[in-house]
Nucleic acid binder design. Sequence first.
RNA 1: GGAGAAGUAGCGAAGUGGCCGUAACGCGCCGCACUCGAAAUGCGGUUGUCCAGCAAUGGGCACGUGGGUUCGAAUCCCACCUUCUCCGCCA
Length: 427
Amino acid sequence: MLDINLIRNHPEFVAGKLSHKGFEVDFTAFLEQDRQRRQLIKQTEDLKAEKNKTSALIPKMKKEGTDIASVLADMKKISDAVREGDEQLALLEQKQNSFLASLPNLPADDVPAGGKENNQVIKISGEKPSFSFSPRHHVDLVEATGLIDYARGAKLGGSGFWIYTGDGARLEWALLNFFIAEHLQDGYQMLLPPHILNYSCGYTAGQFPKFEEDVFQLKRDDKESFTHFILPTAETALVNLHRDEIIDTDRLPLKYFAFTPCYRKEAGSYRAEERGMIRGHQFNKIELFQYTEPDHSEAALEELVHKAANLVEKLGLHYRLSKLAAGDCSAFMRKTYDIEVWIPSMNDYKEVSSASSAGDYQARRGNIRYRDKVTGKPAFAHTLNASGLATSRIFPAIVEQYQQEDGSILIPEVLQPWMGGQRIINA
RNA sequence: GGAGAAGUAGCGAAGUGGCCGUAACGCGCCGCACUCGAAAUGCGGUUGUCCAGCAAUGGGCACGUGGGUUCGAAUCCCACCUUCUCCGCCA
């Protein structure tokens, strides 16, 4: 949610920033309606003030034995007028809110305008592995070594699901353990949230109402619309932790991380070159999250990016770090860095972590505040998130980048302690 | 799944149709006084949001949420949410 005052005072500025995301909007009609709405508020509130004044007099008049029949009749009229005004206002407000809720976040000043093609590569870490043999696709490798059972995964859940088996399950678990240990060491608090969330959670995160179709919806009994959904990322849970709260400023920044599977419908987005586990309906992810004061969010984003990149680096994987152009950021983010790991078989980099600052956009939607130390007044906090990390692309990257000529796979050193010292997955 | 109880400020809690929502009382917190200092005590302060206004200020709204009854609702009625207790079932 954007600050309505910013739109009132600088509509061209806001429209300009939004156009950097490829979102064209004209605020003229909106602002006119806003003026009308406020005028109506004034009118209705004046009526209410009159009503309150008279209402206070009635018991006194009663006591004095004054005939109040005419007063009561007047009150009835005022009440009706108030009700009519309130009804109109509710309608206007609903219209206004759904318009405001549909606006994306403004990109930060240092975010380049335009789409994907304007993403800026900031850093490339390591080098593309070169093989003295012809490297195999991770799907071939994991099936040959029995790490993943795609066929039975599809039997159980359908296409887009797989089963980690044997060393594959252990490798997956080792990754998660490695991430968790790192985040604990950095002072982040670990959470295991519910995987089923109510509608408000999706709204606060910015996913609803626009992306309702992307999640698995749960209908309750005979209800027509869905009230709950299965979370598409732990971010959706984490951003709602402090919804409708005023956070004790001394506790900021709040640093959390959570492990959850992520459940996504991703309807129609499956592509042939993404066979395997690049894009599934369920994947595991550790999500990092911070609540900060506005002054500290820039530094917090850098910290999150650094943490995520550090994990990939410690795994010894070749990756690149990019700052996304405005149009490639999520609608509700003001700035996003992507960490993409090299997948040899795809001859491409695939996202393993997206580190973003939402600024106060999510905080406005979820009414997440802290008390400003200078003014003593509540103010909107900033929220930031980063994957740390999603395993579904790290896993294939490890398998492909660490594959040996005989089809065996070396286990990255940092994971070995989490696999009982095992160093290699044999062909 | 069944039965019952409850939701009021940071916390506890009073209020059962108008004299009660900057909401009694208690705790906490902040300031001041007393003190060498502290404790104790005393005095004062301590919700959020919206509208108008440069401001001072004035006004509206909020007693879990949403409706309803009424001139008037924390209070009466309906639905929903959450929590607790008991019973049943259960990993």
